[in-house]
Simulated scan of single mutants.
Amino acid sequence: MSISKLCNRIFDEAIKAYNVTDSVDAACNNPYPLQTIEHYLFLKNWIDNAQWHLEDIIRDPNIAPADALVIKRRIDKSNQDRTDLVELIDSYFLDTYKEVKPLPEATINTESPAWAIDRLSILKLKIYNMQLAATRPDANADHRTRCNEKLRILIEQDGDLCTAIDQLVDDIAAGRKYMKVYKQMKMYNDPTLNPILLGKK
């Protein structure tokens, strides 16, 4: 099974599992063993699901400022969890292909496999939610037409992205590309680097 097919299957499973409760507070009952690529992919999409809905909640024009701050803090933590998980997924690819010797003409890609998979996870959520919007019972015909056109484009993007991910992983496996894992080193989360947090210590 290609990596994109594996991602699509597990992302669909995670979306279905998340929407059993459709709650940002629901526990992630990951069905896959710890430290497997399947476990990481399921958790990745679950985090994206929850953050998707947190982003919806915080845009409520009537949200109380105190509640908005709580949600913002949750989004910040979710972003850090997401970044950490992407780095774990890239570490999986590094380990999988550690014996591959890059060809003399090998080049590095603009993004690693895991960051492309990160985009695929978000894209699957866009497709799922656009399908809901396109079939909303109270929507008029114009709304449905516009949503279906957007859905068509998203599905095309999905096909293109899956092809690109598979090509990248195949190129790494064959030594035509090589990869590195660069830690994101987000400064705003680091109490020793963020000047605001530094002043609070």
Results as ranks from 00 to 15, higher is better:
144 R>C: 14
160 D>Y: 15
178 Y>F: 15
155 I>E: 11
31 P>E: 02
85 L>G: 00
38 E>H: 06
31 P>T: 06
165 I>V: 13
32 Y>K: 12
87 E>D: 03
107 T>F: 05
148 N>Q: 10
189 N>M: 09
17 A>R: 11
34 L>Y: 05
186 K>G: 00
66 A>Q: 10
170 D>W: 04
190 D>I: 03
40 Y>K: 14
49 N>M: 12
74 R>W: 01
89 I>E: 07
44 K>S: 01
108 I>E: 15
195 P>Q: 03
47 I>H: 13
16 K>Y: 11
171 D>G: 06
143 H>Q: 11
117 I>H: 00
144 R>W: 09
158 D>S: 07
155 I>S: 12
75 I>C: 02
136 R>T: 08
123 L>P: 01
66 A>R: 03
75 I>P: 01
41 L>P: 00
197 L>R: 12
149 E>K: 14
5 K>M: 14
134 A>K: 09
111 E>F: 01
77 K>F: 02
110 T>S: 09
120 L>V: 05
132 L>P: 06
9 R>L: 11
144 R>F: 04
27 A>G: 02
26 A>L: 09
156 E>S: 02
50 A>V: 15
89 I>W: 06
78 S>P: 08
40 Y>G: 07
10 I>E: 07
30 N>Y: 02
57 I>N: 03
28 C>V: 12
95 D>I: 02
